[in-house]
Computed example of a mutant assay.
Amino acid sequence: MPVAQTENLNILAVDDMPSPEQIKALVPLTDKAAASVLAGRRALMDILDRKDKRLFVVVGPCSIHDPVAGLDYARRLRALADEVAETMVLVMRVYFEKPRTSTGWKGYINDPYMNDSFRIDEGMEKARRFLLDVAETGLPIATEALDPIAPQFYGDLISWTAIGARTSESQTHREMASGLSTPVGFKNATDGDMDVAVNAIISAASPHSFLGVSGQGQSAILRTRGNKYGHAVLRGGGGRPNYDTVSISLAEQALVKAKLPVNIVVDCSHANSWKKPELQPLVMKDVVHQVREGNRSVVGLMIESNLEAGNQPIPADLSLLKYGCSVTDACVGWDTTVDMIKRADAELREALALRERTE
């Protein structure tokens, strides 16, 4: 009697995927890009270690869908980064993976042609190529780690990694973060719970062993040393923002109680701005004011920004897409971005000089 089939009952197909090494061979790391990545990581680690008194600002589109517009943004940001280099390290937000509550476009890697063809193999190569182009401008790059295998394909081009509010509590993502080569920011939970981020930082700092893939694409046991550069990202939640002085003080107390470095990044978007991009400048202004008033725990900020303000639905005819406008969360436009960062630069000069003298 034949054995009954008990697996793959809901799998329609299994398509081959190039290995990380094959993708890297198609889009190899250059000396110029590697120097940019390492310089970015070093600057961020120095900020977290309090060797560098500047703030870092993760700024860029909610998601990348058009590499031409994305590179246009990167070149503008590169020029702006030079202007404010005394007070801030600008890190370009390059997010390819979009977590979904139910359904929707899952991002450039998953569906690069935005037509439900799901050419993940091509999306991964395109994503790596875009990261290489951005790194070669000299900008450090930030991304969100959602798929636990994806960093094997492009982690060598990343300087800062976020673990999102939905995944900070995930053991899989905490284990992955323990092996990443970048500083990692853990967001508080969507309900505002700070303990999730604190526990994630503790977990990621410890060694782990877990299932993954090797550079050759084979199943492997990955063994990590632990990542000591985990830190908290406040993004609001539970129906309220958490960038105010009281919320930041409570976050500081939670980190001290856990015997962790008191390093906090404030996300100006998401629940902190009630998902209204026009409120992001007010959030940033408030946090910069706290730094001016003597706050020592805030080391960074996050801004969702694009060439054009707002967002747009994905049309059936992709030629109708508006250039430089988000297809996921709404963003502030480029002019507003420049204004936000230049205002912060002017206000931070005196405050950071005071940090230098008093620490």
Rank of each mutant, 00 (worst) to 15 (best):
R50D: 04
R343V: 11
D244S: 09
M194H: 06
D16E: 13
I264P: 02
S247G: 08
R41C: 09
R292K: 14
D335P: 04
A346H: 09
F118W: 11
L307N: 05
M45T: 13
L44A: 05
G333E: 08
V287H: 03
K259G: 03
G212R: 03
P20G: 00
K285W: 07
S209G: 14
D147G: 03
K53M: 03
E308T: 14
V37P: 00
I23E: 00
R42A: 12
Q290Y: 04
A200E: 00
G310R: 09
A4D: 07
G333H: 05
R129H: 12
T336C: 13
D317R: 05
Q22E: 15
L12S: 13
D49T: 07
F153G: 00
N295R: 14
S170W: 06
C331Y: 09
A309C: 04
G179H: 10
E347Y: 09
D339R: 14
G310A: 13
Q22A: 15
S326Y: 12
M92R: 06
V266D: 02
G40F: 01
L55F: 06
P20W: 00
I201W: 01
S63Q: 08
R41W: 04
N188M: 07
V266P: 02
V246H: 12
K32Q: 08
V68C: 06
V184E: 05
L320I: 06
P183R: 12
E169M: 07
A330F: 11
A33T: 02
G236Q: 10
N272A: 09
T161S: 15
A353M: 09
E21I: 02
W160F: 15
D286I: 00
C62N: 11
D31V: 03
G40W: 01
A344N: 12
I64E: 06
R357I: 05
S178F: 05
R42M: 10
I303P: 00
V14H: 11
D111Q: 08
L29Q: 01
N242Q: 10
D46F: 01
V262Y: 06
E252F: 02
T182R: 08
T328K: 06
T245Q: 13
P18Q: 00
A309D: 07
L80A: 08
